[in-house]
């Protein structure tokens, strides 16, 4: 029921192109929803301008050429290789989209570059489910990259579930940092 409502609602929003900055419901993730969000993200690529179009960006733009400015911006974005998720979701957060788009463009521009997406979960919940959840997160990122220019052959996914936490401990902060997909360029 939720599914169909969400799907319809999202389809409507996507059609209207009104998504930018819209944080979708984090608890209502499922496969169909992920796919829709990936697809929607492509349409929103233009929307990242809105996101990136901050005052800071406007200030620096005057000192650099447009291309230099863009390249520097992309390189800075690509410094970020870890993407975080909410509990029991595989939905890419809006703030991650520009970065992932940057990675996708880079991969598109460098066809020999390979990347491994390592999906992780926090320690909560069951190991096997978390293993699947980590995989789903990795695959969500993989789809996003492919949709944004990367080719399937460049990308490998693996899930470690909750087995390889980035941060030890049983705190909200640790959990938040452990629910992630890491891009490992080889």
């Amino acid at each position: 029921m939720n599914l169909s409502v969400q799907t319809k609602a999202f389809a409507l929003l996507a059609t209207l192109g009104l998504i930018a900055g819209c944080s979708s419901n984090q608890t209502m993730d499922d496969g169909a929803y992920d796919s829709a969000s990936d697809v929607a993200a492509i349409d929103q690529s233009g929307g990242s301008t809105v996101y990136g179009g901050s005052d800071d960006g406007g200030v620096s733009a005057e000192t650099l050429t447009e291309e230099e400015r863009m390249a520097a911006e992309q390189a800075a974005l690509r410094e970020i290789t870890t993407f975080y998720f909410d509990f029991d979701t595989s939905e890419i957060k809006p703030e991650a989209r520009d970065v992932l788009v940057a990675h996708a463009r880079y991969l598109a521009e460098h066809p020999n570059q390979r990347v491994r997406l390592e999906g992780h979960a926090d320690e909560r919940g069951t190991k096997e489910y978390n293993l699947a959840l980590g995989e789903r997160r990795a695959k969500a990122v993989q789809r996003f990259l492919i949709v944004n220019g990367a080719s399937r052959g460049q990308i490998e996914t693996v899930s470690y579930g909750e087995e390889k936490p980035a941060v030890m401990g049983s705190t909200e902060s640790a959990w938040a940092q452990n629910r992630r997909v890491e891009l490992v360029f080889e």
């Binding site: 939720n2 599914l3 608890t27 209502m28 993730d29 499922d30 029991d88 919940g125 069951t126 096997e128 489910y129």
Partner: peptide, 9 residues
């Protein structure tokens, strides 16, 4: 088995 087909596991 476990399934999250309803939204959560």
């Amino acid at each position: 088995f476990t399934s999250d087909r309803s939204g959560g596991p």
